[in-house]
Amino acid sequence: MITNGTSKTVVKLHVNGETRDVMIRSADTLLQTLREQLGLTAAKRACQNGDCGACTVLVNGEPTHSCLSLSIESVDQHITTIEGFNNSFIQQEFVDKWAIQCGFCTPGFILNCYALANKHPNADDATIEEWMQSNLCRCTGYQEIKEAVKSVLQKHAGGSVS
C-alpha cells in the first residue's frame, strides 16, 4: 500500500530516465512537483483544470495532463517531459513547419504528437484530430501544427520517433 500523510514526504519519481527524490504534499499535483522541485518548467501551468493541454507529459508513454495527476499517484510511473527529448526529429518538424509562435503550448503539443506517432503511426485525420484536440493553441490557428503532426507521422513509418 502507498500512503502519504498531510505533512510533506520524500518520494521517488522516475522522470526522463532518472530517479529523483522530491518532497511532496499529498495535494501537490505532478505539474507542481515537476516545475517547482525538479525545475522541469516546460510543462506549463495554463489552466490547472485539464482544459488546455499545456501541461501535458507522458506517463508510461500516455499523454497525461500533469495538472490532473497528484504527484503521489505518479510514484512507480515512468514520466517523460520534453526536457527528456534531445533534438528529436519531432521537435525539428515543429520548427521546420512554422508550428511555433509564442511557444507556450509547444511542449504539450510535441509530447502528445510523440505519443500519437508511437501508438498510431498510421493515424488517420480523425485520430489526429481526436488526439490533438486536447491541446489549445492561441497563436497559430492550428494549420502549421497539423502540418507538423502529419509530417511527423509520415516520416516516422514505424521507427522510433525520438
Binding site: T41, K44, T81, Q92, F94, C102, T106, P107
Partner: peptide, 12 residues
C-alpha cells in the same frame, strides 16, 4: 526563437 521553444527550455 523556434529551436529553444521546441526544446522547452525557454523560460517564461
Amino acid at each position: 526563437d523556434a529551436v529553444e521553444k521546441a526544446a522547452g527550455t525557454v523560460r517564461y
